[in-house]
Amino acid sequence: METVKSLNKWANAHTYQWLDILRVVVGVFLFSKGVSFITSTLYYTELIAPIKNFGGGMIFIHYIVAAHMVGGIMIVFGLLTRWAIAAQIPILLSAFSINFIGQMNIGNLILSLLLVLICIFFLFYGSGKHSADYYFKMQQ
């Protein structure tokens, strides 16, 4: 717990407007990916086809949709950002590794790698000063 407090203090001392904008953009992107999962399930079932024999292909799809949509909204508002990011990282690592199992798509590979790196940064950085977490902390 002390580590999280020290990370929050460091993040609040080194907050920048562009980091908050980046957090919001990542949240909106993840939310839109969740919506695209719902609207085009055929594409994503074909995407997950190489790993469907590992069990629970539909469970993966439902977990991904819920995590992207709810987590995206939480990241946009900066509410429990580290928890929302922690739910996204396994999905993004899977998206990165699925390029090596199935057909290689360089665009998806770069996008998923970039998102993994950004999410790992926000896992340590937190939500920043312009967030619901900071607002609620200041209300105590």
Rank of each mutant, 00 (worst) to 15 (best):
T15S: 15
S6V: 15
H14P: 11
Q139W: 14
V25A: 08
A87Y: 00
H14C: 12
G27H: 05
F122L: 07
F29C: 11
N8R: 06
S127R: 00
Y43M: 09
Q139E: 10
T45W: 04
Y43F: 15
C119A: 14
L113H: 03
V26H: 07
T45G: 04
F124M: 07
M104H: 07
I61L: 15
L111K: 11
Q17C: 01
G128W: 01
L22E: 00
L7W: 12
I73C: 11
F29H: 11
H68G: 01
A95S: 10
L42I: 12
P50Q: 05
I89R: 01
P90T: 07
K5M: 15
F31G: 09
I59S: 10
V35C: 10
L92N: 01
N99P: 10
L93E: 11
F124P: 03
A86W: 08
K129R: 12
L80D: 02
F60D: 13
A95M: 11
D20M: 02
E46Q: 12
I64Q: 09
G78N: 01
A13D: 15
M69F: 07
H68R: 06
L109Y: 11
A11P: 11
V70S: 12
I110E: 07
L42Y: 14
G126A: 06
N12S: 07
Q139L: 08
W10M: 08
S40I: 07
N105D: 13
V76K: 06
D20I: 03
M74N: 06
I75S: 05
Q139S: 04
L93I: 14
H62W: 15
W83G: 10
L114V: 13
F31T: 15
G55H: 14
A13W: 08
L123T: 04
L117I: 10
S127M: 00
N105T: 13
L93T: 14
N99C: 07
F136D: 12
Q139G: 01
N108T: 12
V24E: 01
M1H: 08
L123F: 15
L79C: 05
S131T: 05
F121R: 01
Q140W: 08
L123P: 03
E2W: 03
P90Q: 02
I21F: 12
T3H: 08
A87H: 00
T41F: 15
K5E: 14
S112V: 13
Y43K: 03
E46S: 11
P50L: 04
K52W: 15
I61F: 12
H68L: 10
M69L: 11
L47Q: 08
V116H: 06
M69V: 09
H14Y: 07
G102L: 05
I48D: 03
T41C: 06
A67Y: 04
T45R: 02
V116S: 03
F60Q: 08
V24G: 00
A132D: 01
H68A: 09
A86D: 02
